[in-house]
Structure formats: C-alpha cells, structure tokens
Design a protein around this nucleic acid. Structure first.
Lengths: 213, 213
DNA sequence: TAGATTGTTAATCGATTAACAATC
DNA sequence: TAGATTGTTAATCGATTAACAATC
C-alpha cells in the first residue's frame, strides 16, 4: 500500500519509539502548534535529538525545514499512516473484572486505530460496558468465527489465563495482549505481548534505588 | 548492602529482563518445581537461552548445575534480593477514577515490594478503596511531607496531569509513574515512567500487520 | 549575515549470539 | 557413558552518538 519515497530501513528500535512521537505530536497538534522540531520532541521525551531526527527522517513525507522543523499536522499524518492508525483493528476482551472494565471504557484506543468490540466473562455481571456487549465465555468461539476478529485481550486472574489463551487460539486469534502475570504457552505463530503492571512499577523503584546509592 | 561475589557488571538490558524472570520463577515456585534451567525459562519467555544464562550468571549466588539448572527457591531469593523486592516502597496515587481503583485494588504489587498507601482525588467518591484512605487533593502536600513517600502515580485525565505532576514535585516526590497519555515537563532529577496503554496495544497491532505483509 | 536546525556519514558503543570446553 | 546443561570468550550484529556540511 504505502511505498515510502526512499527505501530506508526502519530500525526495530525506531519502530518502538514512533508511538511515543505520535502521542507527543498529537498533543502539540491539539495545542494548536504549527511547527515542531526534533529538538523539542527529544526534550519532551527525554531522548537524544539526533536519534529523533533520524527516526523522523525515515517516515516523514516532507523534509524538516532548518530553523523551523516539521509541520505538526503533516508529521502527525505521516506517523499515523506509517503506524497504520488510520486503519481500524478490533479486539475482544476476556475477563470483565475491574481491569476489564477500565480497558473497555478507555477512550484512548481510538486514535490508535483500535477498538474493543465485546467483553466475555464466565459470569457476566453487566449486559453492557461502555456500550459494548458482555457475553458469557462459551459464546466466544462462535463470536470470533463470525466476526473474524484476531486480537484477544486477557484480563482474567493468572490461574485462568492459560485456559483462556488456549480457547482464544482454538477460536482463531492471532495476537494476544496478556495482563495476567504469567507466561503463556502458545504456538509460535501467535503474537503475544505481556503487560505486567507490577513489574513495570517495580522497574521504577529499582531505578530509583540505584540512583540513591 | 549486597556486595556481589564477583563484580560482573549488570547490563541495563539484563536489568530490564530480570523482573520477568522473577515473575516466571515465582510461578514455578508456586507450582512446586524444584529445579529450573535457563533453557526452560528462555522457552517460556521467548528469549535466547544463552542470554538468560548470562543474565542469571550475574545475579545467582549459587552456580547452576549442569543437567539440572538452578534451584528454584534459591534463584527466586537471589532475584528478589538483587531487585530489592524484600525492601518495601510506598507510593501515593492521584486520580481515583476507574483506573485508579484498579491500581489500588491490584494485589500483584505486594511481591514486588510495593504498596499504594493512599489515593487522592479532587472529589473523593469513596472514603476507602481496598482498605486504603482516599483523601482530597489539597491534603496531598502535608501527607507527603509527613510520610516521606517519594513515589507518585498519576491516573488523572491528560489535561490535568501536568498540574498534578507539579504538585507532586513541589511536595517532594522523586519518581512518577504516569498513566496519562502526555509527556510531563519535569526537573531532571525526577524519575518518570510513562505508561501509555493505548500505545502499548497499538504496538501489538503494528507488529501483527507487519507480519501479514 | 548568524544561528538554529536539518540530514547523513563514520565512529563508538553496547547487546546478542555462536562456539566450545567443562561438568554432572 | 552419553547427553543436557552450564559458564565464558570471541565474533557478530545492531543501535546510538559525534561530527559536519547544507540550508533557511
């Protein structure tokens, strides 16, 4: 679809930083700023300006202008299309507990081209959350087959996570976002991203202690 | 406190992986396993076994035994003490909305040596959440001065995040875990970790698309 | 013009992986 | 013993940063 003007190879590390640029540029756009420079982005995000410049060089359709930087609206669109956020992906969520509720209600996914279309639970307590249906877990396979959805979010307690994962895979899911603090045993072709909030916060305290000593 | 037997330098990248080893080893301990090898950890976590071995070599107090691997209980303790999870850190949370509730109720922080001791909100709707007090925001400065707590969690909407951050810093906080999808403008000596859930999920879909093409 | 910023090349730095001898 | 695993060194690979000429 999108053949880049030059065939620069985008580094994996670059790809990892692009979403944060996207968020930053989106905020600047909202504030009505017209131009943005690598330098100021680097500053906001705590990165090296040369790195930002190099990253942006690979994805911007219009070169940055010396002394000014990049047009905010243009850069925003470039990031958006490069990251594919103008396409739309749908996901289901399993485990409509406290965390599940938050994820279903969270509006932030929209500008990243994502949507949670339904929740599943062993014992649904609500019929709907944030306008989306909450269904009993045994309807999951048929729902997935019908809708062709390929992304599943796991927000059940750790002991149930593997079972849920197995069910998701059996029903044709291709990618899993896992909030349960366990590693999942899955076929190689399934993409997994583990989100361990506790470990994430712990990393902060570890770094904090390292600094003190 | 803990002088390591050998003064191997621990790589930053290693440090980033240790929490996931900790989680994995904790789960194996809970399952009653006695020995664990680099190979199986690598397998569960989708990493290179040599990498895991090298990482563990730097922190284990007892060498792994050929053919068996490491004693699970021993390795768990080594990881725990290396990461400092047997010390205890306390944090306050600002913004007791849906996400704030989840974080306050989340039990998982305990085994990582952390605890949220209080929540703050402009208009507290509950007196307590998960047994911890929820206080009006104007009591934050005095609370922090009294308790000497140095970690703050921001779970307010994006537009309010900077104000909250300023208040936290003014009250003596040293580290911030930010859930609002904005970059914060803070003094250099303040440690920040941004947690953008939408960007995180988006990374999954980006990778998923990359695979398809 | 002077100064800030750009894009790019080359040098440095850091992390991963391959290879291998040692061990139980 | 044979085989699985260990720890470590050396080679490769990838990412960051320094340096600089070009531009508005």
């Amino acid at each position: 679809m999108s053949e880049k003007k030059n065939s620069l190879i985008i580094l994996k590390s670059t790809l990892g930083r692009l979403p944060s640029y996207y968020c930053e540029v989106e905020n600047r756009l909202a504030r009505g700023e017209e131009y943005v420079s690598s330098t100021t982005i680097a500053d906001s995000l705590g990165l090296n300006p040369v790195q930002v410049r190099k990253d942006l060089a690979g994805i911007s359709s219009e070169p940055g202008r010396p002394k000014l930087g990049f047009r905010v609206d243009r850069l925003f669109e470039d990031l958006k299309s490069f990251l594919g956020y103008n396409f739309y992906d749908e996901a289901v969520l399993v485990g409509v507990g406290a965390l599940g509720h938050v994820l279903m209600q969270y509006g932030g996914f929209n500008s990243y081209g994502l949507g949670i279309v339904a929740g599943f639970d062993r014992e649904p307590h609500d019929k709907k959350v944030a306008g989306k249906p909450v269904l009993p877990i045994d309807q999951l396979p048929s729902f997935l087959k019908m809708t062709q959805i390929v992304i599943g979010i796991i927000a059940v307690p750790a002991p149930e996570a593997q079972n849920v994962a197995d069910l998701l895979v059996k029903s044709g899911i291709k990618a899993i976002w896992n909030f349960a603090p366990t590693s999942l045993n899955l076929p190689d072709n399934i993409l997994v991203k583990n989100e361990n909030l506790a470990a994430s916060l712990a990393a902060l305290t570890t770094e904090l202690r390292r600094r003190k000593s």
